[in-house]
Simulated assay, not measured.
Amino acid sequence: MTMKCIAPAEARDLIERGAKLIDIRARDEYAREHIPGAVNVPLAEIDRLDVGDCPVVFHCRSGARTEANAAQLAAATGAPCYMVEGGMDAWRRAGLAVKADRHQPLELMRQVQLVAGGLVLFGVVLGFLASPGFFALSAFVGSGLMFAGATGWCGMARLLRHMPWNRRMVA
């Protein structure tokens, strides 16, 4: 089964006629901001999706994740499948309703990007201003990111997940 790409307004019309809206982003992304009425089924859990023969509209943040996994998503349902072109970003630009909870923490991967980027920058600045030994901090963070990319295990993400500011999100 193939998946048709549709504009946000067309997706809204399908949903109003009974189609199920499935948000495939991670739980922390969904907790911070989502389309009202969307059901969160992260991509890693898509096998548990049960929609019957009801049409399904999938979306992510930008549409790239949905498009890259279109075959897997379509295979998870026995119903007609659609994807929101441009994802939630396009939905928001179209002026359609979005429910945001800015009290939720930033998405975990954004936190990793901010902390890793800050540590690399800090290591480079201190390497030039204080001692060349501080360049090792940047090398350590860079090697950690490479390890995370190669194995799928990120120590920084695991550490950040347990920080006090990340306790608000409901899993």
Results as ranks from 00 to 15, higher is better:
A94T: 04
R110Y: 06
F122V: 00
Q72A: 14
G78C: 06
G144D: 04
C54A: 11
Q113N: 09
A139V: 12
I35T: 07
A26W: 10
S62R: 13
R110S: 05
M3R: 02
R25F: 03
A71I: 07
L106R: 09
D50G: 07
A11V: 09
A44L: 11
L145V: 10
H34A: 15
A64G: 10
M146G: 07
A130N: 03
A44Q: 15
F128Y: 08
L106Y: 01
G152P: 12
R17S: 14
C154E: 01
C154Y: 05
G117F: 03
D89I: 10
A11N: 08
D101W: 09
A157L: 11
A76E: 12
C60K: 06
L14I: 10
V112D: 00
G152K: 09
G52R: 04
G87W: 07
R12H: 14
Q72H: 06
S62D: 11
V57S: 08
M156P: 07
A7Y: 08
E107K: 00
A97I: 05
M3T: 06
M156A: 05
M88Y: 08
L137R: 00
L119W: 03
V84D: 07
L114A: 08
V57L: 11
A171M: 14
F135C: 00
E29L: 08
S131G: 02
C154V: 05
E85G: 11
